[in-house]
Design a protein around this nucleic acid. Structure first.
Lengths: 117, 117
DNA sequence: GGATAATGATACGGGTCCGTAACGATCTGG
DNA sequence: CCAGATCGTTACGGACCCGTATCATTATCC
């Protein structure tokens, strides 16, 4: 059973959630950073720099820098892979899980408000 | 009739759309820029710097700079208000309307894909 | 008309991010 | 064991954005 949503509703939803994110002084994440954050929290581990770069279609330094920022915000951490010490494994944090959960609530709540318009 | 969506679906939707935005090399807009763009295209004109600053809860230079960027991308333009020449009216553009429409399609399409999960 | 208020833009010092190119560390295979 | 491949990070010059304070322009009101 598909999720029914019309273009006009989609835009209202997108706008309202972004307004909330901005007004709550949640860090002003870019589209790239958001994509990385959600990929780490929704897809099965392990997550590596190279893997994320491939999934997003960007270069590795872009991922490294985004991880610097997201790490500074406490939304995730890095750990050396002991099996193959060339790799770095990106791990979730409590703060990151809370932020993602909060985003989910924001979206669902605004979706309910919008309703049939 | 409210728009039914569960938190897990909301997150999947949010991630998929952001992944598409990143992969298509659509300009990597921040949450603030997105909020401004959608406000201009969804709310009734006229839009001013001061009005947008109030709605987003940010200072005026933030709006000015965002308009610089969005203007450079061709997504909207500024025009002096002839009635009160202190004001600047933010106007929509064809390219901006297309980008917004494309975002709407992206959201609706991914919503359909996600369905009952 | 002249003081006051309001609007949007700009200056500033500091931080972040960009893409390209190079780098050190680590693994792999002959 | 050592050349080559692979991983993530860093260096670099340039562009953008931040928040605060200030600016020029325009309108208002006595």
């Amino acid at each position: 059973m598909p999720l029914e949503i019309r273009p006009s509703q989609a835009l209202k939803l997108w706008r309202q959630v972004h307004l909330d994110l901005v007004r709550d002084h949640d860090a002003d994440l870019s589209a790239r950073q958001t994509a990385i954050l959600l990929t780490v929290y929704l897809e099965l581990p392990p997550h590596t720099v190279r893997g994320l770069a491939q999934q997003l279609g960007v270069t590795k330094p872009v991922i490294t820098r985004a991880l610097d920022t997201l790490g500074k915000l406490g939304l995730l951490t890095r750990k050396r892979d002991e099996a193959d010490r060339r790799n770095v494994v990106i791990q979730r944090t409590v703060a990151g899980a809370l932020a993602v959960e909060r985003l989910a609530d924001l979206v669902t709540e605004h979706a309910r408000e919008i309703g049939g318009s």
